[in-house]
Design a protein around this nucleic acid. Structure first.
Lengths: 268, 268
DNA sequence: TAGTGGTCTAGACCACCTA
DNA sequence: AGGTGGTCTAGACCACTAA
């Protein structure tokens, strides 16, 4: 690690005191001097993200106070603050006035807020029940290779499950995971909250995801899993979930009956 | 207007100099003193939003510099900056280093980025062509009354149109608008970019929107407008668009064929 | 009461743009 | 060259929480 040489001269005096190396990166003469400019607070943020990835700061844990971090890294509290603010904006960290800054957890509250966009037409959003239909392994198919950015035929673990509200089938989905990242997952029990499992058991934090939605007609097989008629319209959700460093680590193809439920998208 | 009395005592000295009144709001004795606390920068932000609503700052215009605004209002540049940063985060304002801060416009670029989430499976996102099928007026139906938070039977203008990529029908939608807010709209020409019309002709800025998605089977009428078969699955998008002050001003019900197109939702 | 994050200020300097 | 937003610092005080 180490902070860029892009830090302005006037701070060098200050920075020369702290523990981080100033890695002098010589620039190409014909490159504008500012092309590689990265603000200090982003470098500090990168240090923090690294600590999250490495498990130095585990989910639920309290971070050191802003003042302590500032002193440790050798920057002002305002710079630490700006770095933490960005992490909070990305839901990687939760700040609570008077208490401290905590590493975000994948509890049901967060998942409901960030990752589960299906809500009942009437009533409050809630977490569905899950029944695992099968857990299988095999080489990645084309869709999985594209989604997960994998080499040909990389081994994949697939979880197929049905999810429901009060016993009424709602979703049938297939979750595809690279075995290299989740070894042995196919042998253990599969909890309802997968992201909590990824974090707790494999040290992989899902940071964000991208979903592509289509309306499709149910196949006979999917219809059977949902107790619906083949050909019935269903909402298809194709999700790619990314870890802290932006690597795609999960592909999920969900089919949802939307008679009494909708997908909520806030355009801000 | 005027800033809260909640401003800390140490700033009163400073604030007594500037032009804004300090409206003393007496508190209930049993209420915690901090319940009504609103940071200075949010009060400043509210002043700016008001100027956007009143058209003092029109779409595309340059705002005064941070320093000028700070001097005018009588707060520090940092406080103005924090207010503008939030407006930029809400896409109400665009900041460009070295140039200035501009009022956001509803040009195609912004709409594509913020409001139009349908993208071709292959190729770059783009704006569809539109053909107006009908413009009608009438009393609000139940769905419109709920969506637009209207009195019973408030008059509504409805625009029904078909949208397509390269002549291939993609969307058939009905846009419902309160006539009170958009008088005479039913008589004029209907441009492809409605939000630009709202802003330019009626001074109404769409700030954000909420969409609810379902998969449905096409009715015979909608299928005809799309050149598709009745019963075919379609993505139904139910949008409520809100103006700067949070008032719902537009309801839009769209039906989309998603064979070669998907709805993109980023989970962050 | 002590400690945390949140707000606010003041001032310096940097990166970027226009002219 | 001059102006704009962007970064960084230093220090004070406020709001909130827990012991």
């Amino acid at each position: 690690m180490g902070l860029d040489a892009a830090a302005p001269k006037s701070y060098i005096r200050h920075m020369s005191v702290h523990k981080l190396e100033i890695t002098a990166q010589p620039r190409e003469p014909d490159m504008p001097e500012t092309l590689g400019f990265r603000p200090l607070y982003r470098q500090v943020k990168a240090i923090f993200v690294r600590r999250l990835m490495d498990g130095v700061w585990a989910p639920g844990a309290v971070l050191p106070s802003e003042g302590q971090l500032a002193a440790e890294i050798g920057v002002s509290q305002g710079t630490v603050r700006k770095a933490l603010d960005e992490l909070a904006a990305e839901n990687l960290v939760v700040r609570r006035q008077g208490r401290g800054t905590f590493v975000a957890e994948h509890d049901e509250r967060r998942i409901l807020f960030q990752f589960f966009k299906l809500a009942p037409d009437q009533g409050a959003p809630r977490f569905p029940d899950s029944v695992v239909l099968s857990v299988t392994t095999g080489p990645a198919d084309d869709a999985e290779r594209t989604a997960l950015d994998l080499q040909e035929a990389a081994p994949i673990t697939r979880i197929r499950r049905q999810r429901s509200f009060d016993g009424a089938p709602l979703i049938v989905e297939t979750v595809s995971l690279p075995q290299a990242l989740f070894p042995g997952l196919e042998n253990g029990p599969i909890p309802n909250n997968l992201y909590s499992l990824y974090a707790g058991h494999y040290g992989i934090t899902i940071a964000n995801a991208r979903e592509r939605l289509k309306a499709v007609a149910l196949s006979a097989k999917d219809a059977a899993a949902l107790g619906a008629a083949a050909g019935e319209p269903a909402l298809q959700i194709d999700r790619i979930a990314l870890s802290l460093d932006g690597t795609p680590v999960e592909h999920r193809l969900s089919l949802c009956l939307t008679q009494e439920v909708h997908y909520l998208s806030d355009l801000r």
